[in-house]
Design a protein around this nucleic acid. Structure first.
Lengths: 193, 193
DNA sequence: ATGATAATAGAACAATCGTTCTATGTCAAT
DNA sequence: ATTGACATAGAACGATTGTTCTATTATCAT
């Protein structure tokens, strides 16, 4: 098959998956690819499976494989830049899967204030918080202090527990009675445009 | 229907979607929910559609709606904390859709070096780069300088173009002949655990 | 106990699914 | 010109789909 045709169809397929959050049926692919034969589509899909763009799950249903995921990971900056022709071999991933281990227990919070600025968490950034992870010393946590929620470093030193901001103009907080931890910060997300 | 049963099934459905990247068929839901009647599943799905957890697209196929997306957005920190019972009303979103406008033109790069540290981009962070966006003054770009790729601020001042690091210990770069821009940084991602 | 309401079971239906078959068309190499 | 290799067309198949129907069971207030 012509490589250009292959890539064109792959692109249409990817677009359909992004738009509809599911893969099209063979009949639908007929329309998408301007074909009249489901068999042609069937063979095209087998090529996609060979090249690991899509897979079949236990039920024989088509599901997207890793290569159909939204983001290509290009590696380190200094390592030089892969050129466009060899991009096929690169890792692809989904940011959702990359950043979130426990979807049911994870939520996102928009940060205001500059108390974590020297940890690289700026006002307007979003943090991902996991409720299920037990906090360890050095982790960034969302904690309730004086009935207000803040983001701080969680420090545990010889049974002493306190909260330290990553900005020295704010004081260290020693909890009076009990310390309520909403969750551990597992990731940071910033959006420029 | 019992609310507890509803949520339990919703959770199983969500898990299936995360695992298989597609919604289960009615027969599959029978197994998942331990039901023997497709009709029960059918009615359950209609409740899901009513409450906007799933939808039907043009072809009548079930597709996940917004509420089935991986991350719940809880708003600002200071605004206080919604308690767990009213979480239903919260915004949910996919990080992929949130951060990536042009999936075909976007890639991810792992940052090494501290040249952008005061812009909140630390070594080990990942940046999302969009090839299609034309750079404007003040944007962060991936640029080729002396056959090496770096991340810098793109500055355009009265037809003068130069690259400025966000760390004053590095020099401003004035391109000699031509300036090769690989793309504009549209987002930053950091993973702690 | 009675009746009202909802959830489930189970059969049945047309429509669509993925798959396999054969036939036709195209193009390059021989 | 003939061959072989593909891409496509188009018909056909059983399996599965979503949906509708009626019947049975569970729940709960009265």
């Amino acid at each position: 098959m012509d490589q250009a045709v292959f890539e064109q169809r792959l692109q249409k397929l990817t677009k359909f998956y992004i738009d509809n959050k599911r893969l099209p049926s063979y009949s639908e692919m007929c329309k998408i690819f301007n074909l009249r034969s489901k068999n042609t589509v069937y063979r095209f899909c087998q090529k996609l499976i060979e090249r690991d763009y899509i897979r079949k799950d236990e039920q024989g249903k088509l599901i997207p494989s890793d290569k159909l995921k939204p983001v290509k990971l290009l590696g380190y900056i200094q390592a030089g830049f892969p050129n466009t022709t060899e991009e096929e071999t690169l890792d692809t991933l989904s940011l959702d899967e990359f950043l979130i281990k426990n979807p049911q227990a994870t939520f996102m919070l928009k940060i205001s204030g500059d108390s974590m600025i020297s940890a690289g968490i700026l006002p307007g950034d979003y943090v991902l918080v996991d409720r299920t992870i037990p906090p360890e010393s050095g982790m960034i946590v969302i904690a309730q202090v004086d009935s207000k929620w803040t983001i701080k470093y969680f420090i545990k030193n010889k049974n002493k527990i306190y909260l330290k901001p990553a900005n020295s103009k704010y004081p260290i907080i020693y909890p009076k009675d009990e310390l309520i931890i909403a969750g551990v910060v597992t990731g940071v997300v910033r959006k420029y445009l």
